[in-house]
């Protein structure tokens, strides 16, 4: 074979994004994929993106839901900054988030580790039992905990009395209302347990064997093997629980604002951000201001999530990653 016979293939011209898209679109799989995605895309546009855009516009207006909106510029945002109740609501919400998220993840992780130890025919039973509370409708959870947390005859204080502790008035004492809400929130950690349990199941046994051979005890194995290997899941539940906590509404609304009777015991301690937003929109007919509050919360959630993602890059281990 002579040198002349060696043919160097011509380099294909780089495909532009448009050409790549056109090439992909010619494939039937792509068209089918979009067809199946279409319901979600439509739903997203109509029920999420559209209202978001609308609320952004409304946030610059004075709008009472009934009459046409009138443009007021940045007044609603200025009011938001000056409103002392926004500060109260934000304080309650952030305090709840800061305590609830690590506490719930720690408890969920402990329970997931316990579940992981259970083998045999009882394993499925216990998994179901731990997840079951998460299936309870949130309104029912609110009502249930009004009873459980009652200072006079609630089960929580009855339990504390067994240890000689005279429990507080969790639902009526402003100093204890927030803690009562945090206790209630632990009822629904079943979802987090399931995610962490699944992650624990995926940790290879040979890593533990290697650690044991190296002389690592149980705590060391947990710290050096388990935690890094499930850090991706821990990161995920941290982000999801943080967002959910900042948006806390239903349970607290049911307990303290849901009807004429419950709102009578509402105190500043139970005023969460989304509840205040809801009050402004539907109770006081200030939908423009409520929209500004919604965007304020969106900005907070976005910033917190970005910070978490940035920090997560340092601490989260993904299998197959170089780090």
């Amino acid at each position: 074979m002579s040198a002349a016979d060696v043919r160097v293939p011509l380099a294909a011209p780089p495909m532009t994004r448009r050409r790549r898209w056109q090439a992909a679109w010619r494939r039937p799989e792509t068209r089918w994929a979009y067809l199946f995605l279409l319901p979600w895309i439509l739903g997203f546009l109509v029920f999420t993106a559209g209202p978001m855009l609308a609320s952004l516009v409304l946030s610059f207006t004075d709008y009472d839901v009934i009459n046409p909106a009138t443009y007021v510029g940045g007044e609603n945002y200025q009011r938001m900054v000056e409103d002392p109740e926004v500060r109260t609501a934000l304080f309650n919400t952030v305090l709840y988030t800061v305590i609830h998220v690590p506490l719930s993840i720690a408890i969920a992780l402990a329970l997931a580790v316990l579940l992981n130890q259970i083998g045999g025919r009882f394993a499925g039973f216990f998994r179901t039992v731990f997840y079951l509370p998460a299936m309870t409708p949130t309104v029912a959870v609110g009502v249930l905990f009004l009873l459980l947390l009652n200072g006079q005859n609630g089960l929580v204080n009855a339990l504390l009395r067994l240890f000689g502790i005279n429990g507080p008035a969790w639902t009526t004492d402003p100093d204890w209302v927030r803690w009562g809400i945090i206790i209630m929130s632990l009822w629904t950690i079943g979802g987090t347990i399931v995610i962490l349990f699944a992650a624990l199941k995926n940790v290879p046994n040979d890593l533990y064997e290697a650690a044991r051979i190296d002389g690592a005890g149980a705590w060391r194995q947990f710290r050096e093997v388990t935690v890094p290997m499930i850090s991706g899941s821990l990161f995920f539940v941290t982000i999801v629980n943080t967002i959910a906590s900042l948006q806390m509404f239903t349970e607290v609304y049911t307990m303290f604002y849901g009807n004429a009777q419950s709102e009578l015991q509402a105190s500043d301690s139970a005023l969460f951000y989304v509840i205040y937003l809801f009050q402004q929109g539907f109770q006081f007919l200030e939908m423009g201001y409520a929209s500004a509050l919604a965007w304020g919360l969106f900005a907070i959630v976005l910033i917190v999530t970005l910070v978490q993602v940035k920090l997560g890059d340092r601490f989260v281990y993904y299998e197959g990653d170089d780090r």
Binding site: F47, T48, P51, S55, L58, G281, L293, W295, L297
Partner: peptide, 13 residues
């Protein structure tokens, strides 16, 4: 999404 609460209620809902 939090922002959807007000907007969705006002318009879409």
């Amino acid at each position: 999404m939090p922002v959807a609460i007000a907007g969705a209620a006002a318009l879409t809902l």
